[in-house]
Structure formats: structure tokens, C-alpha cells
């Protein structure tokens, strides 16, 4: 590292150039984090993709097994794609549709707002496993809900809320709604309340104010909320196992991958995981590009 001689000159000049492009010594602080992510995220993902092409019979055999339903227990892995998609899409649509009006009504000063937010946060903290097992207790044939409905004579037979898609969907909504709500509260409070007033003075009725001013401004936030809710709901499997019936109607993709993994079938487990990623990213891509088509131009909240 001597500064003299042609190589030293070269090094100095190189360092000078780097510095001019913004590579100061401080930048190296980023190395531990970046290195960790490369080693323990990027590498495993690549490794998993590679593994999925190392099936027992040729490079594509893991995927052929997956799509020909030749996996452990043989419950129909192709159908799992649809099941997972349906569950996740339904859950995130319900979450966003419920979260937007609640958050919108919370934008002003509401009594006990903080307490309400705290209560809504509880299921998010409890996590999917607890909510699923509580739902199983609560929604089951002898749970309180069915008991109450039987008691008031609304139903003759206990409603089958457990062991099928309904129960899973309900528990996904219970865990996902708080998150969606929290995000939407952030987005609604980011909109200048003056815009609503301005629209009112311009002659817009409350419904028009919502649909013509607030809603378009919330749309980007809603898209993000939908995407993140979808991500959360898509990968969950405790609810599908505990409240649903993972041997058939609610056998989600992550359960398929897990089963293969627990039997030591790494290529097919990886193939299932890759299929999951592809499906999920495809949905996110579709939603985000649809937003681009729907809505051009700047979308940031009401800045004066």
C-alpha cells in the first residue's frame, strides 16, 4: 500500500474516483447487513431453486411430480395452488374492504381511539397459531358461537365452521385485519383534512367527497395494504392445519412444501416453495400493474 510507484498512483486515482461517486468510508457500514442477507437469504433462495431442479429423474422431475400430484399423501398439489390463492385473495379483499372504512372513520378525533387501536392490535400480536387454536375452540360444533345460534333458534344444526374454508378464512381475517387497519390508519391520516373541506366548499356531498377525493388518494395505500395482506395470508399454514382440514379442502401450498420437507424430499419441497413464490409474485405484479393502468400521475397525499 505505498503511495509511490505506478501501482500506488493507480490506487490513489481509483480511490479518488470511488470517493467522487459517493463511496466514502462510511458506506462500508452497510457491509455486515448486506453480507448477511446475501449469505442467508439470496444464497438459500438460489440454492432452493437449484435444488428444485435436482429431482430423482431428471432436472424437471420435481416439478413434474408436483403438477402430476405425485407427492406424499397425494392430496392434489395442483388444487393446492387454487386453494391457497382463493384463501389469500379472499382474506386480503375482506381485510382491505373492512380496514378502509374503519380507518377512514378513525381519521378525525374519535373517543377511545388509542384503546380501540390497542384492542385491534391484540390478534396481530397473538399470531396465527394462537388465533387458529382459539378459533377452533370458539367456532367448533360445541363452541360458543354455535351454541348461541342454536340457543336463539337461528339454526337447527351446528354450522360447520371448522374443518373447512370458512374457518380458515375467518382466522386469516382475524390475524390479518389488524395489520391492514394499522397501515390504512397511517395512509388516511396522511391525507390533508383540508382537501375534504375544500371539496365540501366546492359543493361535493359527503359521498362525493369520499369517492372523488379521499378514495383516489387512498388508492395507492390500499394497493400496498392489499399486497402486504396477501403476502401475510398466502404463506400461513397453522390456520389451515388447525381450523381447516389440511388433508383436503384447505391443504395450502406451504403445508405441501412442509410435508415434502419433513419426509426428506428436498427437491419436491423446494419445487413447491418455488411455485409458491412464483404465484405470489405474479399476483403482486398483476395488482401493481393494474394500479398503474387505473391511475396515472402523482398520488402522494395532500401536500400544500
Amino acid at each position: 500500500m505505498s503511495a509511490s510507484g505506478p501501482s500506488g498512483d493507480h490506487l490513489l486515482r481509483w480511490r479518488d474516483r470511488a470517493r467522487r461517486r459517493g463511496v466514502t468510508p462510511t458506506v462500508w457500514l452497510v457491509v455486515p447487513g448486506a453480507l448477511f442477507m446475501v449469505v442467508f437469504f439470496v444464497y438459500p433462495v438460489c440454492y432452493g431453486v437449484g435444488l428444485s431442479f435436482q429431482g430423482t429423474q431428471g432436472w424437471s422431475s420435481a416439478y413434474r411430480d408436483f403438477f402430476a400430484d405425485r407427492l406424499v399423501n397425494n392430496h392434489g398439489s395442483r388444487r393446492s395452488i387454487l386453494i391457497t390463492l382463493e384463501l389469500a385473495l379472499a382474506a386480503s379483499v375482506v381485510n382491505v374492504v373492512l380496514a378502509v372504512p374503519i380507518a377512514y372513520r378513525m381519521r378525525g378525533r374519535v373517543r377511545a381511539k388509542r384503546a380501540l387501536i390497542a384492542v385491534v392490535l391484540v390478534p396481530m400480536t397473538l399470531g396465527t397459531v394462537f388465533v387458529a387454536s382459539a378459533m377452533k375452540e370458539f367456532l367448533g360444533p360445541s363452541g360458543w358461537l354455535n351454541r348461541a345460534l342454536l340457543g336463539i333458534g337461528a339454526i337447527e344444526q351446528p354450522l360447520p365452521l371448522v374443518g373447512n374454508v370458512t374457518g380458515v378464512l375467518l382466522s386469516l381475517v382475524f390475524t390479518g385485519l389488524p395489520f391492514a387497519f394499522l397501515l390504512m390508519v397511517g395512509y388516511t391520516s396522511g391525507i390533508d383534512p383540508g382537501l375534504d373541506k375544500a371539496a365540501a366548499v366546492c359543493g361535493a356531498r359527503p359521498a362525493q367527497r369520499f369517492w372523488l377525493v379521499t378514495f383516489p388518494l387512498l388508492l395507492p395505500g390500499m394497493t400496498i395494504t392489499f399486497c402486504l395482506s396477501f403476502v401475510l395470508a398466502f404463506g400461513v399454514f397453522p390456520s389451515a392445519t388447525l381450523v381447516g382440514n389440511d388433508a383436503g379442502p384447505t391443504r395450502v401450498l406451504s403445508k405441501v412444501a412442509y410435508t415434502e420437507y419433513s419426509y426428506g424430499h428436498y427437491p419436491t419441497a423446494s419445487a413447491a416453495a418455488v411455485v409458491m413464490a412464483v404465484v405470489q409474485l405474479a399476483v403482486l405484479g398483476l395488482v401493481l400493474s393494474a394500479r398503474g393502468l387505473l391511475h396515472r400521475g402523482p398520488t402522494t397525499g395532500g401536500k400544500g
Binding site: 463511496v23 452497510v30 442477507m37 446475501v38 433462495v45 432452493g48 416453495a273 418455488v274
Partner: peptide
């Protein structure tokens, strides 16, 4: 600095990839 956006991506992607996708190989 050059590569900043790529780095940001590196920290954003784990939020949108299903856990199973990296959990199994990990």
C-alpha cells in the same frame, strides 16, 4: 452510492417472498 437501489431491493424482497421459499433451503 452506486448500488444503493440494489441494496434497498435486497432488504425489500424478503418482505414479499413467501417464508417457505427461503425457509426450506435455509
Amino acid at each position: 452510492f452506486p448500488g444503493r437501489r440494489l441494496l434497498l431491493l435486497l432488504f425489500l424482497v424478503p418482505q414479499v417472498v413467501p417464508v417457505m421459499t427461503y425457509a426450506v433451503p435455509l
